[in-house]
Design a protein around this nucleic acid. Structure first.
Length: 584
RNA sequence: GCGCCGAUGGUCUAGCGGCUAUGACUGGGGCCUUCCAAGCCCUAAACCCGGGUUCGAAUCCCGGUUGGCGCACCA
């Protein structure tokens, strides 16, 4: 049993992850989050929100998971998110049809399926594997298609990423942020991709949770106002160059920027922020690296792109976050599609005075003379020089026709114009998180089997394994278990009272009075509960209980009346366990 | 999508033509129990689905579903 199997087995058994639709045999690529999984996921998302929404100030929005066709035509997903596949009739191997004819045509990737078939037939392209005949080319689009409304209603797609919602809402967002760059918006939600063959459990799903931020910045200023926060943070970088020698390198953010390893300060800040987030939710720092996209794997419009990768036992390095400078690609694409300018007006610190040659055709005179052609003639005039405009009879070519314009119909002058700013299309910095993958990684990195001496077999000295999920206290689904030492009414009653007190403090509490105390400790270790409170007979004498620490199995004794505050501080602040009570 | 290998209580598993289908752990109820999976009693719980072969199928064959691995794919 490898680590993956151990984690998945525990996850299934204890209510973290279940195969969806199991009752009906299940379907690949879908997972249910059970009671603990769902809670764990929410805790991870909550930390994400704390960092991106509260600290960074990128407000969260919520857009539909179904999108209309235009959105995904603009984003390129309708055309580009599918691949033309064609299969060998003999051996069944599937190939990218456009790749098969790359050596024959130049623009192979822009051809239709029919055109691809034609070229394949004309050049009698055969299966590269076995030489067999190739079948018809078909498009495999990775988006789930649906229909909006009844009948022949409008075409819709399940969104393959949450990002488009933020781009589509750009103008509204810009207004919300009062037209000041940089600003950003975030979204946490489900996205859908009809994967050809989803595998590897929760690593590749057909329905998955993304957390994305779209940060809009000034293309001419990619510094970050708060870079000092991370300047000296050391990060494990696996740059393009480092990949050539196959060894990542730990360096500070400042070094990475100064040496041009990360394209610019703003992107470097985002890389550092992701690093901070992943470690806070419990990813082992030694199993985390940032890999730069190679020149040939990066999207053509992107300036620089880094993937956060986490080392897992079975799958090796798994990509969990992508951080990219996508330039103005997305906004420009939607601007073209929607025929709406998606830009921001940036005011200069000092208005610029610009000398400009201005041509002012007198439309009141030109209109009657040139009728319907007046507009094109006027446009043509604007392109002329002062010298040409000074002639008595101005000859101008417009719409393939020569027109003669009398001098008095057009004025021109050298003018000084005040320009107080300019319109720019912001660049987009996009950190995009795969929450499901992060959740699995958090579980795997938290999973630990520890050998502890067994009480019973002292002579044989047979140790037994203690399974512990060493979650960060912040992310553990259950924060504290309350356990009467024995199943006796006089201990049960005060235990339940303590549980209520802790719930009132907002802590997720488990109460358990079945079985021997040791068994209950182990049950809670297995789901990563950081603290157990035990009520014993001393409690009835002096109103104190024991608090047991999951990682060290040490106990302290603390009074009941402040137990809720103590637990809260242990879980959510830096308060040390040793300070929680008297060491036993 | 192709190829190879698997699928038995909640979990892990035995069985490989002839049962009332092993066993362990877990779960529930009870007894006992003063701090790390103790003991005793009781109890619940499974042959992935559909066809076929056979007197008889958990077992053999075919198809499907599903899981793992390899290939392809992975904006």
């Amino acid at each position: 049993m490898d680590r993956y199997e151990q984690v998945i087995e525990l996850a299934k058994r204890r209510g973290f992850l279940w195969n969806s639709f199991e009752l009906y045999g299940g379907t690949a690529g879908f997972y249910d989050y059970g009671p603990l999984g769902s809670t764990l996921k929410r805790r991870i998302e909550q930390i994400w929100r704390e960092i991106y929404v509260i600290q960074e100030g990128f407000m969260e929005i919520e857009c539909p998971t179904v999108g209309i066709e235009e959105v995904f035509v603009a984003s390129g997903h309708v055309g580009g998110f599918s691949d033309p596949l064609c299969e060998c009739k003999q051996c069944g191997e599937a190939f990218r049809a456009d790749h098969l004819i790359k050596h024959i045509t130049e623009d192979a990737d822009s051809l239709s399926d029919e055109e691809l078939d034609n070229i394949i037939a004309k050049n009698s392209v055969k299966c590269p594997e076995c030489g067999g005949d190739l079948g018809k080319t078909y498009e495999f689009n990775l988006m789930f298609k649906t229909q909006i409304g009844p009948g022949t209603g409008r075409k819709g797609y399940m969104r393959p990423e949450t990002a488009q919602g933020m781009f589509v809402d750009f103008l509204r967002l810009a207004r919300y942020y009062r037209d000041k760059l940089p600003f950003g918006a975030t979204q946490i939600g489900k996205s859908y991709r009809n994967e050809i063959s989803p595998r590897q459990g929760v690593i590749r799903l057909r329905e998955f949770t993304q957390a994305e931020a779209e940060i809009f910045i000034d293309p001419k200023d990619k510094s970050h106002p708060n870079i000092r926060r991370f300047e000296n943070t050391a990060i494990n970088l696996y740059s393009d160059a480092a990949q050539d020698i196959g060894k990542s390198e730990i360096m500070t953010v400042r070094e990475a920027v100064d040496n041009g390893i990360i394209a610019h300060e703003f992107l470097a800040y985002q890389v550092a922020l992701v690093n901070h987030f992943l470690q806070r939710v419990g990813i082992a720092p030694g199993k985390l690296r940032f890999r730069q996209h190679r020149k040939d794997e990066m999207a053509h419009y992107a300036i620089d792109c880094w993937d956060a990768e986490i080392l897992t036992d079975r799958f090796g390095w798994v990509e969990v976050v992508g951080i990219a400078d996508r330039t103005d690609y997305d906004l420009s694409a939607h601007a073209n599609m929607s025929k709406t300018e998606l830009s921001i007006f940036i005011e200069y610190e000092q208005p610029k005075m610009v000398e400009k040659f201005v041509v002012k055709p007198n439309m009141g005179k030109m209109g009657p003379r040139f009728k319907g052609k007046a507009k094109v003639v006027a446009e043509a005039l604007k392109a002329l020089t002062a010298e040409e405009l000074e002639k008595e009879e101005i000859k101008v070519l417009a719409a393939g026709e020569e027109f003669t314009v009398p001098r008095e119909m057009v004025e021109f002058a050298q003018e000084t114009i005040k320009i107080s700013g300019e319109t720019i299309v912001p660049h987009v910095i996009e950190p995009s998180f795969g929450i499901d993958r992060i959740l699995y990684s958090v579980m795997e990195h938290a999973y630990d089997e520890e050998m502890v001496p067994s009480k019973e077999s002292e002579e044989e000295a047979e140790d037994e394994a203690r399974i512990v999920l060493r979650f960060k206290k912040e992310v553990s689904p259950v924060k504290v278990a309350v356990l009467p030492l024995l199943t006796r009414q006089e201990l049960i009653e005060p235990s339940k009272e303590i549980a209520i007190k802790l719930k009132d403090k907002g802590l997720l509490v488990a109460y358990d009075d079945s079985g021997a105390i040791g068994r209950r400790y182990r049950r809670n270790d297995e789901i990563g509960t950081p603290y157990c409170i035990t009520v014993d007979y001393d409690t009835l004498q002096d109103n104190t209980v024991t608090i047991r620490d999951r990682d060290s199995m040490q106990q302290v004794r603390a009074p009941i009346d402040t137990i809720d505050n103590v637990l809260y501080e242990l879980v959510y602040t830096d308060r040390k366990f040793e300070t929680a009570g008297k060491r036993i």
